[in-house]
Design a protein around this nucleic acid. Structure first.
Length: 366
DNA sequence: GCGACAG
DNA sequence: ATCTTGTCGC
């Protein structure tokens, strides 16, 4: 039976001072975190962005980055561009007033860059060498900067995780994964597997509406609602798991608050983050052989481990969620490989998730 | 021009 | 994540 060894040989006290008095306080705190998280989800980010774009007056321009800043984080600039290329456009739409920082028009949903520039010209914006003048750029956004609040929540996460190494026996592993039927509908799959044989014991599949866009660093706000709903249903339908693998990072995150960390905080279960590409930090994967690991370092801190899981596969990135540390997470995951790039339970969840998406996309499946 | 961002 | 055919290699 798989067992977590204390990875540094240091035995932690069985009960931390934080919850020594009252085990229920633990539950209470997680309820508070869950409520705080859920209230943050009330924000309608696309609506907020349109509210901002509508503030740009005729005869003025703004930039993708300025809008992202007004939302609360410059990293959202890419999503701003995505939304402007995928929305219900009409002749009154002001989306042509958003240009690149250097005056290049960027993409335009209705007729391409040339059409965008001519619309700007017709509003009195000087155009030179194919670029819009930024002379009259609007900078007075009235905004609640919703991403700032989400970022502040993330900044509180690391201190609220339990840093003690998990030292229980791992009999069952849960693995959670998602895929998308459309931009607003996701399929989420949970797999429970035996930790020794890696055989799948049970699976649960749900579909769930997704409101929040994908923005790098904010994945949890997009995918956690569905995963929490899935998890809740798994509690009554499946045998309990001792550790949960999540498709996405935990500590390997700019604020050490990836989706696996948030899930572990909100559900109070041991979690491990599994990423397929590097979100942040630096790592040298040259010459990695199956079974090898390499540290992922960010700001002089170990935030995850690159793990070579299979021969002709790129490494995966393992990081800590709740109740595990990084070396321990990697040790455990390395016992779950069965010839695929992903640990077997997550590989199965990934298969099922994509299978279900295919089924739902077939017109005949009603 | 380059780097660069989980899913 | 998704858009997508054949093709290379075990």
């Amino acid at each position: 039976m798989a067992r977590f060894p204390p990875s540094h040989g240091v035995h932690q006290p069985p009960i931390s001072t934080r919850d020594a008095e009252d085990p229920a306080l633990h539950i209470y705190n997680h309820g508070v975190h869950r409520d705080a998280f859920l209230s943050l989800l009330d924000v309608n980010l696309p609506a907020e962005l349109w509210r901002l774009i509508a503030q740009v007056p005729r005869g003025c321009v703004t930039t993708y980055g300025a809008l992202a800043d007004a939302l609360g984080d410059r990293v959202a600039a890419r999503w701003v561009g995505e939304l402007l290329m995928d929305h219900a456009h009409d002749v009154d739409c002001p989306c042509h007033r958003v240009v690149r920082r250097n005056g290049e028009p960027g993409l335009y949903i209705a007729g391409g860059a040339a059409a965008k520039l001519s619309r700007l010209a017709s509003e009195g914006i000087p155009i030179e060498h194919g670029r819009a003048s930024l002379e009259r750029h609007f900078a007075g956004f009235q905004s609640a900067a919703p991403l700032r609040g989400l970022k502040e929540f993330q900044q509180q996460v690391p201190a609220r995780l339990d840093l003690r190494c998990f030292d229980g026996t791992v009999r069952r592993i849960a693995a959670l994964d998602m895929a998308y039927v459309s931009s607003s509908t996701a399929v989420a799959v949970g797999v429970i597997a035996d930790a020794t044989s890696l055989e799948t014991m049970s699976t649960l599949t749900i579909t769930s509406p997704v409101m929040f866009p994908y923005i790098s660093g904010y994945l949890a706000f997009r995918e956690l609602p569905a995963l929490l709903s899935l998890w809740k249903q798994m509690q009554s339908a499946a045998p309990a798991a001792d550790v949960v693998l999540i498709d996405g990072n935990g500590s390997l995150h700019p604020r050490r608050a990836g989706i696996a960390a948030c899930f572990g905080l909100l559900t109070d279960v041991p979690t491990i983050g599994i990423g397929k590409s590097l979100l942040c930090g630096r790592v040298d994967v040259a010459g990695l052989r199956v079974g090898d690991t390499r540290p992922v370092i960010d700001r002089d801190e170990l935030i995850g481990l690159a793990v070579k899981s299979a021969d002709r596969s790129r490494p995966i990135f393992v990081s800590a969620g709740n109740y595990v540390d990084i070396p321990q997470a990697a040790q455990l995951v390395q016992r779950m490989f069965a010839g695929h790039r992903l640990p077997e339970p997550l590989h199965q969840a990934d298969r099922l998730t994509k299978q279900r998406v295919r089924e739902l996309r077939m017109p005949s499946s009603s």
